[in-house]
């Protein structure tokens, strides 16, 4: 328990260093673009594949489960849309990215720690926490909401594709369901969740890597810790945000 509080305290102290005034904004801008490419663009294909399949599976499951003359067929499109917007594209994609991006960040920064690259930056007078972590946080907080929207679109298209190719329902019914009782605020909700989860994944993973010590085994452990801690925190904040922003 003491260790938990110690870690939380150190995490917030690290955030204090991360958000202190950057040395030169121009250098940070360059690094933000680099990180958007490394952490954002490189996650598009994984997000697309998973979202398309989940959208298709959700539509298929709904078609099977809602097999009743009393339930209109457009409910399949409606349910698929709601699942994608409210939970899958923000929360589940965040959990998947916690594995991919989180472990990447923790191992990158952890390796820099044990190979003294972070010490080298500190000796040069550079705020290493800000220089290394801030661009990653800005990049993911800006890009992950876009990735969430992308996931929603791809998932819904996946559901349409399964309807079109298998004939489980008329595609027109599916499309009708997509527009049925649509609440635009749910998109805002998904975007906010995407941004919050991006911050959680990046900052926690960076923290785990930044305080890694020892050898390559420790980098591996830091990476695992990053994924576990990010995933649990995402679930806790999913609950909190759902309660606060009830759609």
């Amino acid at each position: 328990m003491i260790s938990l509080f110690e870690n939380i305290g150190r995490y917030f102290m690290l955030l204090g260093k991360v958000f202190s005034r950057p040395e030169k904004l121009r250098i940070y801008n360059r690094r933000i673009w680099f990180e958007i490419e490394a952490l954002g663009f490189n996650s598009i294909s994984l997000t697309a594949i998973i979202s398309a399949f989940i959208g298709a599976v959700v539509a298929l499951q709904m078609a099977i489960t809602l097999e009743s003359p009393f339930i209109p067929k457009y409910m399949i499109g409606y349910a698929t849309r709601e699942v994608m917007i409210l939970e899958f594209s923000s929360t589940v994609v965040a959990l998947i990215l916690a594995g991919k991006v989180g472990s990447n960040i923790a191992s990158e920064i952890g390796t820099m720690r044990i190979t003294e690259q972070i010490d080298a930056l500190e000796i040069m007078g550079i705020n290493s926490a800000s220089y290394l972590i801030l661009p990653k946080i800005v990049a993911t907080v800006l890009f992950f909401p876009l990735l969430t929207l992308f996931s929603i679109v791809v998932g819904i298209v996946g559901g349409y594709a399964i309807a079109y190719f298998t004939g489980i329902m008329i595609p027109g019914d599916y499309v009708e369901g997509l527009f049925y009782y649509f609440e635009p605020f749910s998109i805002t909700y998904a975007i906010v969740k995407g941004a919050v989860f991006a911050f959680i994944i990046t900052s926690i993973s960076a923290y785990c890597g930044y305080y890694a010590k020892g050898n390559s085994l420790e980098v591996g452990r830091a990476s695992t810790r990053a994924v576990v801690a990010s995933s649990i925190t995402i679930m806790i904040f999913d609950l909190i945000l759902t309660q606060i922003m009830r759609v």
Binding site: M112, T115, Q117, D119, A120
Partner: peptide, 10 residues
Amino acid sequence: MIFQGGALLD
């Protein structure tokens, strides 16, 4: 400072 392993940014 010159570190043992060089500590160049990979």
